Simulated scan of single mutants.
Amino acid sequence: MRITKRIAFAISAAALMASLGAASAQELNLKIGTEGAYPPFNNLTADGKLEGFDIDIANALCEEMKAKCEFVTQDWDGIIPALQAGKFDAIIASMSITPERAEKVDFTHKYYNTPSALAGPKDSDIKGVAKADLAGKTIGVATSTTHFNYATQTYTDSEIKGYPTSQEFLLDLANGRLDAVEDDISVLEEWLKTADGACCKLIGQPSPQPVEIFGEGAGIAVRKGETDLVNKLNDAIKAIRANGKYKAINDKYFTFDVYGAES
């Protein structure tokens, strides 16, 4: 009888261990790639801490998916190749969903959508954002971005100066080395509140903002064919929009809903 009980206990214990092992195997572990140089969306502080809207959204999505996540910082120009090489599993870095990028990665639905804008010195003689308004001017913009694509295609009578990050061209604008810069309106508005940004003002927003250049909004990029991860992330985006977590994060950084119109 004791032998029978011992056998039964052993079988039960083995079943429990197998169950725990299966649960552990199903745990979602993700590495999230981000730039860390694009406030207020993602920024690396002096003490090495990542902060910003993208970071808070990523943490909320990971919590919703019950996933264990860690962040990896990566220069913008190499962020898609790094994803493809397996350095991380997803990019949450304000990446616009465009047809060109969709040939290289798969995207979730958007998690925000804000317009492009131009800024310049407060004493600038630039009156608008049309091609003629910027003729002969030097415009700073980050390379490998939708803003760079728009500027090079639209302002053909201007000098377009490319930079690795927005922080670098904003510094040049503040120091009088540029006539204007183009970037996300939220990034520019946040910078204008700083001491360096006191020099400058918003000039305006290009209109219309062509979807074929700017895309449908910012999405999360994953490697091609990872449909299951895309679905999990889409479900999580929908969930945090519904349960109020998205709004709490939104209101921490912005005075308006950055998600934009429902699609």
Rank of each mutant, 00 (worst) to 15 (best):
L30V: 15
I203H: 01
N243F: 11
A221G: 09
A58N: 09
V211A: 15
A8Q: 14
P40T: 11
A18P: 10
G204T: 04
A248L: 11
I32D: 14
A18N: 07
K238G: 07
Q84T: 07
T73R: 11
P208V: 12
F88H: 05
F148M: 06
T156M: 09
G36E: 02
G48H: 01
I57K: 09
T227V: 15
I97K: 02
R223W: 00
N243V: 12
G225N: 05
L50E: 04
I237L: 08
L202G: 11
H109F: 12
A132N: 03
K127I: 01
F254H: 10
F148G: 12
K68V: 10
E103P: 05
A60E: 02
G52R: 06
D106A: 11
E35C: 12
A117L: 05
T146Q: 04
G197Y: 00
A90S: 13
A102T: 07
D179A: 14
G162D: 12
A117S: 06
S186C: 10
T4L: 13
Y38W: 10
L16D: 04
K247R: 06
K201P: 07
K110E: 02
M95N: 05
D179M: 09
G48L: 05
L233A: 14
C199Y: 01
L134I: 10
E159P: 09
I7A: 12
M95V: 13
S158V: 13
A132W: 00
A13Q: 05
I57M: 14
G219A: 14
A248R: 07
A198D: 08
P115R: 02
E35R: 05
E226Y: 06
M17L: 07
H147L: 12
G136E: 09
I80K: 02
L28D: 01
N42I: 08
D125W: 01
A248F: 11
T227M: 13
N231G: 14
A218M: 02
G52T: 12
K127M: 02
